[in-house]
Simulated scan of single mutants.
Amino acid sequence: MSRGKCLERFYALRLKIPVFLENSLTADTSAYCDTLRDPHFLCDMAFLTDISGHLNCLNVRLQGKDQTVSDLFGHVNSFQKKLSLFRDNLASDPPNLTHFPACGELRNDIPELAECEMTIHRYREALKMLQDQFNNRFQDFHDMRGTIQLFTDPISAVVNDQPPELQMELCELQGDLFFQMKRNERGVSFWRLLPETRFPLLRDFALKQASMFGSTYIYVRATSP
């Protein structure tokens, strides 16, 4: 995924590559050229270019510095919502290709417009498979939703839904006007404000959340000499 721009660049050269193969090589390249001019193949390549671009953006966001598990959960959760949006867009007639620029460009270029749109509708199944894979691979994140929400916004957390050992300190925290005024401070910056003598259990909870490695990338950065 770190080479996500490669496919985008190849797609941008899709019209020039067959010309180069035909004019610059002595070997028989007709099979390759025919493939690169086939509407079905071009539709597949355009969709792959677009969805790979979206995945690459997610990959870059997951590699950011100083991110907690809560931040990573937000990125993954947002992308899953985008997948639902993509499926809804492709279900319209004609398909809404606002978030699929390569597919939109191809739809305007190829003469077999209706044929290409029928192909584009099939990509909803591919997006559904991608949704299922995200649900399976990030199930641990979703199982931690309650603790992630508490870490992200303790002032708005429902006390009765929290672990019993944290409820008394959480009542004190939410009833304190000083911390209510600091609710715009999020994540680690908010939890640093809590005095350890007054909120030992909540501080311990926050420390565990903040020290979790949400991705191998962050782990490698933290453990590299």
Score class of each variant (00 low, 15 high):
Met1Glu: 14
Met1Cys: 07
Arg3Asn: 08
Lys5Asn: 06
Lys5Phe: 05
Arg9Glu: 08
Tyr11His: 05
Ala12Glu: 12
Lys16Leu: 14
Pro18Trp: 07
Pro18Leu: 06
Asn23Ser: 14
Leu25Glu: 08
Leu25Asn: 09
Thr26Leu: 12
Ser30Ile: 04
Ser30Gln: 10
Ala31Glu: 08
Thr35Leu: 14
Thr35Glu: 07
Arg37Phe: 01
Arg37Ala: 06
Pro39Val: 02
His40Asp: 05
Cys43Asn: 08
Cys43Pro: 01
Cys43Ile: 04
Asp44Met: 11
Ala46Tyr: 07
Phe47Asn: 01
Leu48Gln: 05
Leu48Cys: 06
Asp50Met: 12
Ser52Ala: 10
Ser52Thr: 15
Ser52Tyr: 11
Ser52His: 07
Asn56Ala: 11
Asn56His: 14
Asn56Cys: 11
Cys57Thr: 07
Leu58Ile: 02
Leu58Glu: 08
Asn59Ser: 13
Arg61Trp: 02
Lys65Tyr: 09
Lys65Glu: 13
Asp66Arg: 13
Gln67Met: 10
Val69Pro: 02
Val69Asn: 01
Ser70His: 08
Phe73Tyr: 15
His75Lys: 10
Val76Trp: 11
Asn77Gln: 15
Ser78Glu: 10
Gln80Asp: 05
Lys81Asn: 07
Lys82Ile: 00
Leu85His: 03
Phe86Met: 06
Ser92Thr: 15
Pro95Cys: 01
Pro95Ile: 00
Asn96Pro: 01
Pro101Val: 03
Ala102Val: 01
Gly104His: 13
Gly104Thr: 02
Gly104Gln: 13
Leu106Ser: 09
Ile110Arg: 01
Ile110Glu: 01
Pro111Thr: 11
Met118Asn: 10
Met118Ser: 11
Thr119Asn: 11
Leu127Thr: 02
Lys128Cys: 05
Asp132Trp: 05
Gln139Gly: 07
Gly146Glu: 13
Gly146Ala: 13
Thr147Met: 12
Ile148Arg: 14
Thr152Ala: 15
Asp153Thr: 06
Pro154Ser: 10
Ile155Val: 14
Asn160Asp: 12
Asp161Met: 09
Pro163Cys: 08
Pro163Ser: 10
Pro164Val: 10
Gln167Asp: 09
Met168Glu: 15
Met168Gly: 08
Leu170Gln: 09
Asp176Cys: 14
Leu177Ala: 12
Leu177Trp: 08
Phe179Val: 00
Gln180Asp: 00
Lys182Thr: 00
Arg183Glu: 06
Arg186Lys: 15
Gly187His: 00
Val188Ala: 08
Arg192Gly: 05
Arg192Trp: 00
Arg192Lys: 14
Leu194Thr: 04
Glu196Met: 12
Arg198His: 09
Arg198Asp: 04
Pro200Gln: 04
Leu201Cys: 08
Phe205Trp: 06
Phe205Val: 01
Leu207Glu: 08
Lys208Phe: 05
Ala210Met: 02
Ala210His: 03
Phe213Leu: 02
Gly214Lys: 05
Gly214Arg: 04
Thr216Gln: 11
Tyr217Arg: 00
Tyr219Ala: 11
Val220Ala: 11
